[in-house]
């Protein structure tokens, strides 16, 4: 009984997070400007991280936890670097 509840609810939440990733991808492709794409990439990273946490609950193991933490760290570093690049790297004068 409880296995069935867990199975279906986790499947449903993974579907929802997957749709969220698709919505973020849509914004990433649509743009229109670089900052929109970076923002969408950041949201995509967060959704991917939550997806891995859900996978971890589903499999019943802690292996995915470290990966989720790593994705979180990479998303922070990546987004900060890209934002810095937008501010200083590209000269619009």
């Amino acid at each position: 009984m409880s296995a069935a509840i867990l199975h279906w609810s986790l499947l449903a939440s993974q579907l929802l997070v997957g749709l969220a990733m698709i919505a973020a991808t849509y914004r990433m492709i649509r743009g229109p400007r670089a900052q929109d794409r970076i923002l969408a990439l950041d949201a995509f990273y967060v959704a991917a991280m939550l997806m891995l946490v859900l996978f971890g609950i589903r499999i019943g193991s802690n292996i995915y936890f470290e990966v989720a933490l790593l994705i979180g760290a990479l998303s922070f570093v990546g987004t900060v670097a890209l934002a810095k690049f937008l501010m200083r790297g590209e000269v619009i004068e």
Binding site: S9, A12, V17, A20, A23, L39, A47, L54
Partner: peptide
């Protein structure tokens, strides 16, 4: 199950807003 669906739904709403 309820908590994970709730969290996933809010994540989806955020990304829909983004789009």
């Amino acid at each position: 199950g309820g908590l994970s669906i709730l969290g996933a739904a809010f994540t989806l709403l955020g990304c829909i807003g983004l789009a």
